[in-house]
Design a protein around this nucleic acid. Structure first.
Lengths: 112, 112
DNA sequence: TGAACATATGAACAAGTGTTCATATGAGGT
DNA sequence: ACCTCATATGAACACTTGTTCATATGTTCA
């Protein structure tokens, strides 16, 4: 691997770009994947209001309990949301301080 | 669709959650999809340094010209990057002011 | 115009993803 | 213990995605 031979290419100014660690790139992509699905975004958006139980979310989004539960599991597994049991219900809520920041920055972007 | 019957559910405090528009959710998910792939993240990371031509990027990431070109096309189609021709080379560079903000917020997240 | 180079693109394929359906698990109340 | 309600989970399926391979397009320069 060599640096670019093209003189006009700014790249020639750098010896070697310090690589984004392969593992880090993979981790980052997994993090972004959580937001890369409309259903999950709608779930997160709903949770901005506060915690909510599974069937409530399903009703809100007019989707099946199963579909929602599967997505909640994925979000929880990736520590985007957390759960708490109260009697027969499981309540889910946000567990990531960066969500709103990221969500809003992205929202700004598509509003242009 | 009714509001939740569970009394302890915070949801009961709201009449009806104002839905994230279906189209908006879809647009947002497409935006995040751009960042949800390790190859595209590595490309963007490399472009933080400045514009670069296709083969240079391929060399940097040790990937085929074709694979990189396909990804660049996707990023460009979604207005994350832009291109400029100089003689025989096409130079790509970032075309989104929110990238670094989002990238860094996400990076903060995985570093915990 | 023709050869050489840089990039783009289409088809094909493997791998990954989200939903549905059926069913399992687990807590509460009788 | 049993029944019911709330949620979780596994298998199957259609759909999407990223890479490779082969080739097309387009630019430069002789």
């Amino acid at each position: 691997m060599e640096t670019c031979k093209v003189e006009s290419c700014k790249h020639t100014q750098f010896k070697r770009v310090d690589e984004l660690d392969v593992v880090e790139a993979e981790e980052l992509s997994i993090f972004f994947k959580m937001y890369a699905d409309a259903t999950r975004l709608k779930i997160l958006h709903v949770l901005f209001k506060g915690e909510m139980c599974v069937q409530c979310i399903a009703d809100e989004l007019d989707m099946s309990q199963s579909a929602i539960s599967h997505q909640l599991a994925i979000l929880k597994r990736n520590r985007i949301i957390k759960s708490r049991r109260d009697k027969k219900n499981m309540f889910y809520s946000l567990d990531d301080k960066h969500i709103e920041l990221i969500f809003n920055a992205a929202y700004e972007h598509i509003k242009e």
